[in-house]
């Protein structure tokens, strides 16, 4: 049997909701695949959309941005800014032919450990279906 493709996913999480939610999934010993690598920021508002473009260049097969539910941002509004920015970024990526399953966003609160597990599973499955990201991955040779 052919070896199953294991996608590599970079996830940007806000400290107050999603990162805490991911911690809770751990405290509750919920199991999920190890394909997701987390970058902690204080707020989804901090996540420059170009970080996502950069992650793809670096070779990520999928990118996830996760923060507090609307109205629950620790800094009141950061997630609203993020929502607009990433809605547009995703449209742009898809327009240039990047598979829409590669970029996702989620709202996971500090109490939603189980939701975090589901989000990871879903994001991994989607990236797996989309396959390895080659389109504009940075070739390290020649640099």
């Amino acid at each position: 049997m052919e070896e199953r493709f294991e996608p590599n996913i970079v996830a940007f999480l806000c400290n107050w909701c999603s990162y805490a939610g991911a911690d809770l999934a751990g405290t509750s010993r919920m199991q999920y695949p190890p394909n997701v690598h987390i970058v902690r920021v204080m707020c989804t508002g901090r996540i420059n959309p170009l970080f996502v473009v950069n992650a793809f260049q670096q070779g990520a097969d999928g990118v996830l941005v996760s923060g507090c539910h609307p109205g629950e941002c620790h800094y009141r509004e950061g997630n609203y800014h993020a929502r607009r920015r990433f809605t547009l970024l995703r449209e742009l990526l898809v327009f240039t032919g990047v598979d829409r399953r590669r970029f996702n966003m989620s709202w996971v609160s500090a109490s939603e450990g189980a939701k975090w597990r589901e989000v990871v599973r879903e994001a991994v499955e989607m990236a797996r279906e989309a396959g390895p990201f080659e389109q504009f991955r940075r070739e390290m040779i020649g640099w």
Partner: peptide, 12 residues
């Protein structure tokens, strides 16, 4: 700028 009711159809 933003609006609290901006669309968010793709959010998991």
């Amino acid at each position: 700028a933003f609006r609290p009711d901006d669309s968010e159809e793709f959010i998991l």
